[in-house]
């Protein structure tokens, strides 16, 4: 066997082994735990019950799930509406300007997002920068209570996840041939109608991937909700974390975790289906 072949094999075995030990096995354990029960001696007693999933369907848990989806949906919508114009400008900017703007998008990745989330408290708390500026301008008399509100969580998630919306949109808009737009205008479409009839459909793959990249992480980013939202469990991620670390109801946490994974899998499946259909139509 050549050394090249050995190297290839080693890399593949290494990667597969790593994924098996640290991703596949833990997920299987969580999956099995979701059918288990708990006792005073052990966090997990092996069993084969659907009770944990049934408990997830009760009123309070369902509210957390729906609230979390609503919050993530809102964050996704805000990201899409702000990122689309920005990505359009980015795609059309001259090369030097474009590089600077892209750098600005990427710079936040250089700092840990937990640190950046804490940094936001410095902006938002009652003696924070925003309140100080507004008060010194005389726009408000007393500090606004911005911390520990759903609004702060939405702001934090939007801030953290916006680049994940901008980059796929930029890629799609940059690839978009300007002549399609010219053809639409030539055939009598106003800029607005050309946008809806031609630009939006042709950048749909970018829109969908951007939304997936924002929506799915937003459901699970419990630390943003912890730091900016206070003790209330606003996201499904917080709920799962609480079951494992606070309430010590591992089977319920595992069931919620499996549900979240299934939900993400379902959405990815829908995305692939629609991407495949769009791809078939486009090619």
């Amino acid at each position: 066997m050549s050394s090249d072949g050995f190297f290839k094999r080693a890399v593949i075995i290494g990667a597969v082994g790593w994924m098996t030990v640290f991703a596949f096995v833990p997920n299987i354990l969580v999956f099995l735990a979701s059918f288990g029960t708990t006792s005073t001696e052990n966090f997990i007693e092996p069993a084969a019950t659907l009770r944990n999933y049934a408990r997830l369907m009760d009123r309070t848990h369902l509210d957390i799930l729906l609230g979390s989806l609503r919050l993530s949906g809102l964050v996704t919508a805000i990201c899409l509406l702000t990122a689309y114009p920005f990505a359009s400008i980015l795609a059309r900017a001259r090369k030097p300007v474009r590089n600077i703007l892209l750098l600005l998008v990427v710079i936040p990745f250089w700092t840990n997002s937990l640190v950046r989330t804490y940094a936001m408290t410095a902006m938002l708390n009652s003696s924070g920068i925003v309140n100080n500026v507004l008060m010194s301008l005389g726009l408000i008399d007393a500090p606004l209570a911005m911390m520990y509100t759903p609004g702060a969580v939405v702001l934090g998630l939007t801030y953290t996840l916006l680049p994940f919306m901008i980059l796929p949109l930029y890629a799609a808009l940059e690839r978009l041939d300007r002549r399609y737009l010219e053809a639409a205008r030539d055939l009598g479409a106003s800029p607005w109608r050309a946008f809806w009839r031609v630009v939006v459909p042709l950048t749909m793959p970018g829109i969908v991937s951007g939304c997936m990249l924002v929506f799915l992480p937003a459901i699970g980013m419990f630390y943003v909700s912890d730091v900016l939202g206070g003790a209330k469990a606003m996201l499904l991620g917080n709920f799962i974390r609480d079951q494992f670390l606070t309430t010590r109801d591992w089977p319920l946490g595992a069931a919620a975790s499996v549900t979240l994974t299934a939900l993400m899998g379902l959405m990815l499946l829908l995305y692939w289906k629609s991407a495949a259909r769009l791809g078939r139509e486009a090619s």
Binding site: R179, E182, R185, D186, G188, A189, E281
Partner: peptide
């Protein structure tokens, strides 16, 4: 006058047919 308000139409070099 923008293109949509001119009574002329173009056949583009690489057609620019809407792929979707």
């Amino acid at each position: 006058l923008p293109p949509e308000r001119r009574n002329v139409n173009t056949v583009f070099q690489s057609y620019a047919l809407f792929p979707h």
